[in-house]
Design a protein around this nucleic acid. Sequence first.
DNA 1: CACCAGGCAAGTA
DNA 2: TACTTGCATGGT
Length: 222
Amino acid sequence: MNSFKLYSILKEYFGEIGTWWPKDTSFEVVVGAVLTQQSNWANVEKALNNLKKISILTPKDIVMVPLDDLKKIIKPSGFYNQKSKRLKEMSEYILEFYGGDVKLLFDKDKKLLREELLKIKGVGKETADSIILYGAEKKEFVVDTYTKRIYSRLKIVEQKITYEDLKNHIINEIPEDLIIYQEFHGYIVLLGKNFCKKNNPKCGQCPLNPKCDYLKDNISLC
DNA sequence: CACCAGGCAAGTA
DNA sequence: TACTTGCATGGT
Protein backbone atom coordinates (compact mmCIF):
# COMPACT_ATOMS: atom_id res chain seq x y z
CA MET A 1 0.00 0.00 0.00
CA ASN A 2 1.36 3.33 -1.12
CA SER A 3 0.76 6.38 1.06
CA PHE A 4 -0.79 8.46 -1.68
CA LYS A 5 -3.09 5.57 -2.59
CA LEU A 6 -4.10 5.28 1.05
CA TYR A 7 -4.71 9.02 1.17
CA SER A 8 -6.88 8.78 -1.94
CA ILE A 9 -8.94 5.91 -0.57
CA LEU A 10 -9.50 7.71 2.71
CA LYS A 11 -10.37 10.97 1.00
CA GLU A 12 -12.97 9.26 -1.16
CA TYR A 13 -14.43 7.48 1.84
CA PHE A 14 -14.48 10.28 4.40
CA GLY A 15 -14.94 13.14 1.96
CA GLU A 16 -13.59 16.64 2.40
CA ILE A 17 -12.60 17.49 5.95
CA GLY A 18 -11.03 20.85 5.18
CA THR A 19 -9.20 22.50 8.02
CA TRP A 20 -10.20 19.96 10.61
CA TRP A 21 -8.09 21.59 13.33
CA PRO A 22 -10.29 24.53 14.35
CA LYS A 23 -8.62 27.78 15.35
CA ASP A 24 -9.40 31.42 15.94
CA THR A 25 -5.76 32.30 16.55
CA SER A 26 -2.34 30.74 16.01
CA PHE A 27 -1.77 30.55 19.73
CA GLU A 28 -4.92 28.49 20.16
CA VAL A 29 -3.27 25.74 18.13
CA VAL A 30 -0.31 25.77 20.50
CA VAL A 31 -2.59 25.43 23.51
CA GLY A 32 -4.74 22.79 21.82
CA ALA A 33 -1.69 20.76 20.82
CA VAL A 34 -0.63 20.49 24.45
CA LEU A 35 -4.11 19.84 25.81
CA THR A 36 -4.79 17.09 23.29
CA GLN A 37 -1.88 14.99 24.50
CA GLN A 38 -3.33 11.65 25.55
CA SER A 39 -6.79 13.08 25.67
CA ASN A 40 -9.75 13.17 23.33
CA TRP A 41 -10.70 16.27 21.41
CA ALA A 42 -14.17 16.66 22.88
CA ASN A 43 -12.61 17.16 26.30
CA VAL A 44 -9.95 19.45 24.89
CA GLU A 45 -12.68 21.65 23.46
CA LYS A 46 -14.27 21.96 26.87
CA ALA A 47 -10.96 23.17 28.24
CA LEU A 48 -10.47 25.56 25.32
CA ASN A 49 -13.97 26.93 25.79
CA ASN A 50 -13.32 27.47 29.48
CA LEU A 51 -10.26 29.50 28.55
CA LYS A 52 -12.18 31.55 25.99
CA LYS A 53 -15.06 32.17 28.37
CA ILE A 54 -12.81 34.13 30.68
CA SER A 55 -10.77 35.59 27.84
CA ILE A 56 -7.54 33.71 28.37
CA LEU A 57 -6.35 33.87 24.80
CA THR A 58 -2.72 34.93 24.80
CA PRO A 59 0.61 33.80 26.27
CA LYS A 60 0.46 36.77 28.61
CA ASP A 61 -2.99 35.71 29.85
CA ILE A 62 -1.67 32.22 30.61
CA VAL A 63 1.33 33.64 32.46
CA MET A 64 -0.88 35.95 34.52
CA VAL A 65 -3.50 33.44 35.64
CA PRO A 66 -2.61 31.66 38.91
CA LEU A 67 -1.50 28.07 38.42
CA ASP A 68 -4.24 26.61 40.58
CA ASP A 69 -6.88 28.49 38.61
CA LEU A 70 -5.41 27.31 35.33
CA LYS A 71 -5.60 23.72 36.54
CA LYS A 72 -9.32 24.04 37.22
CA ILE A 73 -9.93 25.73 33.89
CA ILE A 74 -8.29 22.99 31.81
CA LYS A 75 -9.34 20.12 34.03
CA PRO A 76 -11.67 18.44 31.50
CA SER A 77 -8.73 17.67 29.21
CA GLY A 78 -7.04 15.51 31.86
CA PHE A 79 -3.42 15.51 33.09
CA TYR A 80 -4.07 19.05 34.25
CA ASN A 81 -1.15 19.19 36.69
CA GLN A 82 1.49 18.70 34.05
CA LYS A 83 -0.42 20.35 31.21
CA SER A 84 -0.92 23.54 33.22
CA LYS A 85 2.81 23.69 33.87
CA ARG A 86 3.57 23.05 30.22
CA LEU A 87 1.23 25.83 29.12
CA LYS A 88 2.87 28.18 31.58
CA GLU A 89 6.38 27.33 30.45
CA MET A 90 5.52 27.67 26.79
CA SER A 91 3.76 30.95 27.35
CA GLU A 92 6.66 32.32 29.35
CA TYR A 93 9.00 31.33 26.54
CA ILE A 94 6.90 33.03 23.86
CA LEU A 95 6.52 36.09 26.03
CA GLU A 96 10.22 36.35 26.79
CA PHE A 97 11.63 35.78 23.32
CA TYR A 98 8.82 36.96 21.04
CA GLY A 99 6.98 39.51 23.12
CA GLY A 100 4.02 37.18 23.32
CA ASP A 101 3.52 37.15 19.56
CA VAL A 102 3.61 33.53 18.49
CA LYS A 103 3.51 34.59 14.84
CA LEU A 104 7.02 35.97 15.16
CA LEU A 105 8.12 32.49 16.23
CA PHE A 106 6.16 30.92 13.37
CA ASP A 107 7.92 33.17 10.85
CA LYS A 108 11.17 31.35 11.45
CA ASP A 109 12.55 28.76 9.10
CA LYS A 110 10.72 25.46 9.45
CA LYS A 111 13.75 23.48 10.57
CA LEU A 112 14.83 26.07 13.13
CA LEU A 113 11.26 26.40 14.33
CA ARG A 114 11.03 22.66 14.95
CA GLU A 115 14.32 22.56 16.85
CA GLU A 116 13.20 25.47 18.95
CA LEU A 117 9.82 23.98 19.76
CA LEU A 118 11.41 20.68 20.77
CA LYS A 119 13.52 22.45 23.36
CA ILE A 120 10.42 23.58 25.18
CA LYS A 121 9.38 21.18 27.92
CA GLY A 122 6.10 19.54 27.09
CA VAL A 123 6.66 19.69 23.37
CA GLY A 124 7.71 16.39 21.84
CA LYS A 125 7.91 15.49 18.17
CA GLU A 126 4.22 15.01 17.53
CA THR A 127 3.21 18.17 19.35
CA ALA A 128 5.94 20.18 17.61
CA ASP A 129 4.89 18.93 14.19
CA SER A 130 1.21 19.58 14.92
CA ILE A 131 2.01 23.14 15.91
CA ILE A 132 4.06 23.65 12.74
CA LEU A 133 1.52 22.03 10.41
CA TYR A 134 -1.68 23.51 11.83
CA GLY A 135 -0.46 26.60 13.67
CA ALA A 136 2.42 27.89 11.56
CA GLU A 137 0.91 26.22 8.49
CA LYS A 138 4.18 24.91 7.16
CA LYS A 139 4.71 21.59 5.42
CA GLU A 140 5.71 19.35 8.35
CA PHE A 141 3.98 15.98 8.35
CA VAL A 142 2.57 14.76 11.67
CA VAL A 143 3.07 11.16 12.72
CA ASP A 144 0.92 10.04 15.63
CA THR A 145 0.14 6.79 17.42
CA TYR A 146 -2.58 6.04 14.89
CA THR A 147 -0.18 6.49 11.98
CA LYS A 148 2.26 4.04 13.45
CA ARG A 149 -0.48 1.56 14.32
CA ILE A 150 -2.09 1.72 10.89
CA TYR A 151 1.16 1.46 8.97
CA SER A 152 2.46 -1.46 11.01
CA ARG A 153 -0.91 -3.23 10.97
CA LEU A 154 -1.09 -2.85 7.21
CA LYS A 155 2.40 -4.33 7.22
CA ILE A 156 3.73 -1.35 5.31
CA VAL A 157 6.48 -0.78 7.86
CA GLU A 158 7.99 -2.60 10.83
CA GLN A 159 6.29 -2.06 14.16
CA LYS A 160 9.52 -0.82 15.72
CA ILE A 161 10.05 1.93 13.14
CA THR A 162 11.05 5.27 14.61
CA TYR A 163 9.08 8.49 14.36
CA GLU A 164 11.47 10.09 11.90
CA ASP A 165 11.77 7.00 9.70
CA LEU A 166 8.01 6.63 9.35
CA LYS A 167 7.68 10.32 8.65
CA ASN A 168 10.30 10.12 5.90
CA HIS A 169 8.66 7.03 4.45
CA ILE A 170 5.35 8.86 4.13
CA ILE A 171 6.57 12.21 2.82
CA ASN A 172 8.52 10.39 0.13
CA GLU A 173 5.26 8.92 -1.16
CA ILE A 174 2.97 11.94 -1.13
CA PRO A 175 3.15 15.38 -2.77
CA GLU A 176 4.81 18.08 -0.68
CA ASP A 177 1.63 20.03 -0.16
CA LEU A 178 0.32 21.74 2.95
CA ILE A 179 -3.32 20.80 2.45
CA ILE A 180 -2.49 17.18 1.69
CA TYR A 181 -0.32 16.95 4.80
CA GLN A 182 -3.13 18.37 6.91
CA GLU A 183 -5.86 16.26 5.32
CA PHE A 184 -3.92 13.01 5.38
CA HIS A 185 -3.20 13.31 9.07
CA GLY A 186 -6.88 14.08 9.63
CA TYR A 187 -7.96 11.00 7.70
CA ILE A 188 -5.47 8.86 9.60
CA VAL A 189 -7.05 10.02 12.86
CA LEU A 190 -10.51 9.15 11.56
CA LEU A 191 -9.36 5.72 10.39
CA GLY A 192 -7.23 5.15 13.47
CA LYS A 193 -10.18 5.51 15.80
CA ASN A 194 -11.62 2.36 14.27
CA PHE A 195 -8.57 0.17 14.72
CA CYS A 196 -8.38 -2.13 17.67
CA LYS A 197 -5.61 -0.92 19.93
CA LYS A 198 -4.00 -4.32 19.98
CA ASN A 199 -3.59 -6.59 17.02
CA ASN A 200 -6.22 -9.08 18.04
CA PRO A 201 -6.75 -11.85 15.46
CA LYS A 202 -10.23 -12.43 16.91
CA CYS A 203 -11.24 -8.88 16.20
CA GLY A 204 -11.97 -9.40 12.53
CA GLN A 205 -13.51 -5.97 12.38
CA CYS A 206 -10.60 -3.92 11.24
CA PRO A 207 -10.30 -1.59 9.54
CA LEU A 208 -13.77 -0.44 10.38
CA ASN A 209 -16.38 -1.50 12.84
CA PRO A 210 -19.31 0.11 11.06
CA LYS A 211 -20.49 -1.26 7.79
CA CYS A 212 -17.74 0.05 5.68
CA ASP A 213 -17.67 -2.07 2.57
CA TYR A 214 -15.64 0.40 0.62
CA LEU A 215 -12.71 0.47 3.00
CA LYS A 216 -12.83 -3.27 3.58
CA ASP A 217 -12.56 -3.82 -0.15
CA ASN A 218 -9.57 -1.56 -0.38
CA ILE A 219 -7.72 -2.17 2.85
CA SER A 220 -7.41 -5.65 4.24
CA LEU A 221 -6.40 -6.23 7.81
CA CYS A 222 -6.67 -8.87 10.52
C1' DC B 1 -16.42 -2.84 35.74
C1' DA B 2 -12.58 -2.09 32.05
C1' DC B 3 -10.56 0.40 28.43
C1' DC B 4 -9.36 4.23 25.61
C1' DA B 5 -8.25 9.13 24.03
C1' DG B 6 -4.89 13.36 18.18
C1' DG B 7 2.16 12.15 24.28
C1' DC B 8 5.84 13.66 27.11
C1' DA B 9 9.52 13.50 30.48
C1' DA B 10 12.29 11.15 33.54
C1' DG B 11 14.24 7.08 34.99
C1' DT B 12 16.31 2.58 34.03
C1' DA B 13 19.25 -0.81 31.56
C1' DT C 1 18.99 3.31 21.96
C1' DA C 2 14.74 1.13 23.71
C1' DC C 3 11.63 0.18 27.17
C1' DT C 4 8.76 1.50 31.56
C1' DT C 5 6.10 4.47 34.41
C1' DG C 6 3.40 8.56 36.11
C1' DC C 7 0.27 11.71 34.77
C1' DA C 8 -5.93 11.79 35.20
C1' DT C 9 -10.53 13.26 33.36
C1' DG C 10 -14.57 11.87 30.83
C1' DG C 11 -16.86 8.89 27.25
C1' DT C 12 -18.33 4.33 25.84
